[in-house]
Amino acid sequence: MHDRRLVTEGIRVSRIFPKNSRQIAAALGLGVVLFGGLITAGVTYYFTPKYTRVGYTPYQPVPYSHRIHAGQLGLDCTYCHTNVFESPHANLPSPNVCMNCHDPAKGNIKGDSPLLAPIRDAFKTGRPVDWVKVHKVPDFAYFNHQIHVNRGVSCVSCHGRVDQMVEVRHEQPLSMSWCLDCHRNPEPNLRPNELVTKLDWDSAKDWKVSPLTQNTDSQEAFARKMVKVSALHPPTNCTTCHR
């Protein structure tokens, strides 16, 4: 009696769970783990500014080449971005700066180029050129250019070798963890203030050769001194960047 009931129940159970149910469960479990792992990997890889922002190279209304102007001609960054040492915002130049050389009535270097028509129009009408912003931190993060460049963090640390770019390309993620990496250990990114806008200057290679630095010890020693003398301790609390 007792045994019989067990047998009948056993039959019912085996009708619900087929004979290979163990294999199916194993495959299903493995599938979920694999699928979940893949999703996790995808999110980790793609849901970050390293993917979403790096590589952004918008078309600009005027194909201004930093490689020609900053690289080949050797214009200093501040020839156009004049306020970067005195302002939180690194300004784009107004068209009169372009016109110092490209004004058809004055310097007339390529003064009649059709590519420069938006600049000439802006100069005439006062309506600014619609440059497309490439580097952007979220509006709830308040980045301050002047505090960084005046403390010896070069443009190149965040913007890459703009002097080699025909079109400006977003090179660094500008993510919060990326900011914090440097705020926790700023020393590798420090250099003498005079060299901040020298994008081709490489601390590792040029320190012993450059007339400005060859008489000092090394980049590491310089950075340690900077940190000590000017109490350079980049804050890492929230209100540093978020208000």
Binding site: R53, Y56, T57, P58
Partner: peptide, 19 residues
């Protein structure tokens, strides 16, 4: 990652990022 893109970054929740 790092591929050249002409389009602005795609943002899902953009309200605070672009105020």
């Amino acid at each position: 990652r790092g591929q050249t893109s002409r389009q602005p970054p795609v943002m899902v929740f953009n309200d605070l990022v672009d105020q």
